[in-house]
Design a protein around this nucleic acid. Structure first.
Lengths: 199, 199
DNA sequence: TGTATTCGAACGAACGTTCGATTCCTATCA
DNA sequence: TGATAGGAATCGAACGTTCGTTCGAATACA
């Protein structure tokens, strides 16, 4: 779908700079300089600066659709929690920008939050809440657990881990080879936390 | 410590507008209009727009010092987790702006992140990790739990809950009277999750 | 040859800051 | 007590800069 080298380069630098400093924090002169083009290319290819931001945002959030495929493939609730953790870890590991866009839009929403961001957050939480609800019906999770709150707690634990590691590198050693262990640890904490018995 | 009505009003509107849209997202004309003063008052009272932002940030983050008093007062590790949850819930309930500043600085750091924000995050996590470590020594928490990761998971669960409720009001019914129940629920999830036995 | 792409210059608007004039407050003195 | 001097506080206007966008010319491509 990428048309020209200029278009592609602007998407790249837009992704990097917007994720670090937000929509208002980056000027088109800075973007075009980093992309090695002229400032008029942004309006030409994307209509406006906000158009570039929107294009980047859409590209970043496309991966959230995967939750539905995972939900269809994985039937067991506990296994679904593990799949979510692995999926989320993978997402953040091979895309360091996604979490910044996600959290930045949550905290300081732009005009694109409601149409672009809100729906995907909603889908993920609702999907996971559904899986947890099913786990409760199967007596695998405790009855007194609120599915939506539990889904938020799960998402909170893992997203916040990466959020903190964005800034406080000294607190966390985040080597990819330790991911397997971390996923297992978070899975343990969570399933023990809401589980009727340990798994 | 507040000098004049103008100074006080600028702090108020600065807190509200900066928290919603960030440092770059608010202009001094917008600030002064909302405060009912002239634009020159910002430079007069705070030196610059960034000076106002810094003043607001310092005021917002002052409350994080309380974690030390709590740690001194509460000796039992499990009780410390509960105190942390109650403290955090209370903090977010009576100050809707704090979490936005906190998360915004984490995601899109300004020049004030390193000197002002980073230290307080560090202190809270280290303090809670210390409490959890003591819990492990007392055989109240499992041996294979990493204290820092567990502290991050705890902070993640509860902060993310409020972060989500900032934007997705439809997902969560956040009535203050339910806080007691929510705190207990998060405490259950967490202490069960890392605990050697349920409490 | 004609369409798509890129560039550099220029535009008006909005930005944060500065500055002289004015108002407000308070301590001081007749 | 009433007048007043002086400093603090506030205002409105203007400054120079940066912002995002536009546009005609130039280039590349098919």
């Amino acid at each position: 779908m990428e048309k020209t080298e200029c278009h592609k380069k602007l998407m790249e630098v837009g992704t990097q700079l917007f994720s670090e400093r937000g929509l208002k924090g980056v000027s088109i002169r800075e973007l075009s300089l980093a992309a090695g083009t002229s400032i008029s290319m942004i309006s030409y290819h994307f209509g406006s600066k906000e158009g570039l931001y929107q294009a980047v945002l859409q590209q970043q959030f496309a991966c959230f659709k995967e939750i539905h495929e995972i939900r269809e493939r994985v039937t067991d609730p506990v296994e679904m929690v593990k799949s979510y953790l692995l999926w989320t870890f993978g997402r953040h590991r091979n895309n360091p920008y996604l979490l910044r866009f996600y959290t930045s839009e949550l905290t300081n929403p732009t005009a694109f939050f409601e149409p672009l961001v809100m729906p995907v957050i909603d889908e993920v939480i609702v999907t996971m809440a559904g899986a947890i609800e099913e786990g409760i019906r199967q007596k695998k999770f405790r009855e007194d657990v609120d599915p939506t709150n539990a889904a938020l707690a799960l998402a909170g634990m893992v997203n916040y881990f990466f959020l903190s590691s964005l800034a406080t590198r000294n607190l966390i050693s985040h080597s990819p080879e330790k991911d397997e262990m971390l996923v297992q640890q978070y899975l343990d904490i969570f399933t023990r936390g809401i589980g009727a018995s340990s798994v």
